[in-house]
Design a binder for these strands. Structure first.
Lengths: 301, 301
DNA sequence: AGTAAAATGGACGATTTGGATGATTTTATG
DNA sequence: CATAAAATCATCCAAATCGTCCATTTTACT
């Protein structure tokens, strides 16, 4: 029943180098089990004892606190969604952050993280809510957590300066800021400079923003449509204005039914973040400098 | 995700010699953790706390994972508000961050930063909007920027673990997340563990949250009241439920006119973040441990 | 001004840390 | 089972940090 950890994992958990940790093992500060091939394995409880006795710092508690989630499993995207649901509903922000950042560091495209983990997780929470297994406040609270994680993720991106500008917003009455924030991160990941106008923006004001900033792209996330006909009229007005100055208009969101879509004019419709990413790449006609996963970790400034 | 710094790094950041810094660590002015080999490691939050409490200058903010500063203009709170307005309206997120973080490092209480800078800035923007000098999207976009800055500020606080829990939210229909987020940061600054439920929460769900988490405090930020009588009824229902389990209810927000207030029952009403801070301090009944900044008294003859 | 306590910061050899390397073991995948 | 990719091994070494001592500067008080 003892979970075994590799030196690398323990080193990461307590924020020291692998070299140091191995030295400590060899000095007997940590008792290790050895594999047939001579690799060191450290039982979790032994690692915990070490931390307690040495009064050592723990930088990444999750590695020691959440058995069954060693790094390899963490990087597999399959069961991340359910782990995220668990983390969100128990208000374990640490764990949520860990899940997302592990994937990010494992060089998963952000679009994929969003489509296959975050979106899935919130769909699950939504279903739980409908079945009365979760309360509204839990869903909202989860949104807060996710938003903080997303903001942190965003701050870790290299700020693009391609000269291509995209503006984004949510229509009036639609206060779901998660999708529009994810879109922004996706666009930034493929080199767009973005400016997120925010949630619940009236169409007229969007038009004003477009005319003032003359962006190459405008993206609109539609999670909720209070008034269908007003939405369609407003949107087409927006498209009209955007066309005049060659601004591509991209829409997406779960509230856009096929019926609504047939009555809209747009440059692209995106079902998923991956679609958005592909379209954004295409639009900027440059083969993109994908955030490379280099082996050599570089010192951050 | 708290980063560990070496004495040398912290010394460089605040522009003192390594010797001094090590001495301070040994005197307990800075809480350090130690590696197994006996090297000192200082968590960033701890370094920030030290800088703020001692009112120490910071020469290299980057080493403390803080955004770059503009030391000449900074530190004076007077014209920060207008500089912030400028930064927000020109979408200069860097500048906005610098303004807020400079004040933070200069040991200004977060409540004061919020009351005298951020709140003032947004009041100014609101006025500009009314005078048609600014568009709605600019105000919303400013909110996005401010929200990101606030989230970053929050991540720089030492995570409190007092055991005292506060829940916070915004009423249904009120989507202004800035005030409620500022409140959270203020509460955390004075040692409360907080859980922000989010914006636009129905009263019934708030009651459910209170009953489930049994917090010592519930705070409600009211920037907008869609239906006055429904609000009053709902709120008093909330207060009732909270009273039963000894949860203090704190309200605040610009939408609370005196007429509305006279019909509400609450533990405290806060006009400003400073009020909230004072009330929160009082409620936790602990006299704050004032760090002595005087040198040791010399022997008296 | 004069004095002494207190604080600062530099220097020292001894110790610790962490990055790099090429060989070996483990794990993932067909 | 076989193969390739990833993780870990043992080792070495430069750089960082330790604790300590001491000269110098600052501060507090007479």
């Amino acid at each position: 029943m003892d979970q075994l950890l590799s030196p690398k994992q323990v080193a990461a958990a307590i924020g020291v180098s692998e070299s140091s940790l191995k030295r400590w093992c060899d000095q007997g500060l940590l008792t290790t089990v050895k594999t047939a091939g001579g690799h060191r394995r450290i039982p979790v409880q032994e690692a915990l004892r070490f931390v307690r006795e040495q009064n050592h710092a723990v930088v990444e508690p999750r590695l020691l606190a959440m058995p069954g989630t060693d790094n390899r499993k963490a990087r597999r995207i399959e069961n991340c969604a359910e782990r995220l649901v668990e983390g969100l509903l128990t208000n374990n922000e640490q764990a949520c952050r860990a899940i997302v950042f592990d994937l990010f560091l494992a060089a998963q495209p952000v679009s994929q993280i969003f489509d296959e983990v975050i979106a899935v997780a919130f769909r699950t929470i939504g279903e739980k809510w409908e079945c009365n297994e979760a309360d509204i406040y839990q869903e909202r609270c989860s949104c807060q957590i996710a938003l903080r994680v997303l903001h942190e993720l965003r701050s870790k991106q290299t700020p693009p300066n391609s000269g291509l500008v995209a503006l984004g917003a949510t229509v009036e009455g639609d206060q779901y800021s998660l999708p529009v924030t994810m879109s922004e991160i996706v666009l930034r990941a493929v080199g767009w400079e973005t400016r997120l106008l925010g949630s619940s923006i009236p169409f007229d004001s969007m038009v004003a923003a477009i005319q003032q900033h003359k962006p190459e792209m405008f993206w609109l996330s539609v999670s909720f449509v209070p008034d269908e006909s007003a939405f369609i009229a407003g949107f087409n007005r927006l498209f009209e204005a955007a066309s005049k100055i060659n601004t591509a208009v991209v829409v997406g969101g779960r509230a856009l039914t096929t019926e609504i879509r047939t009555r809209l004019r747009y440059s692209a419709f995106c079902d998923t973040m991956r679609h958005l990413e592909e379209f954004a790449k295409t639009l900027r006609r440059q083969t993109e400098v994908v955030p490379k996963k280099t082996r050599k970790p570089r010192k951050n400034a």
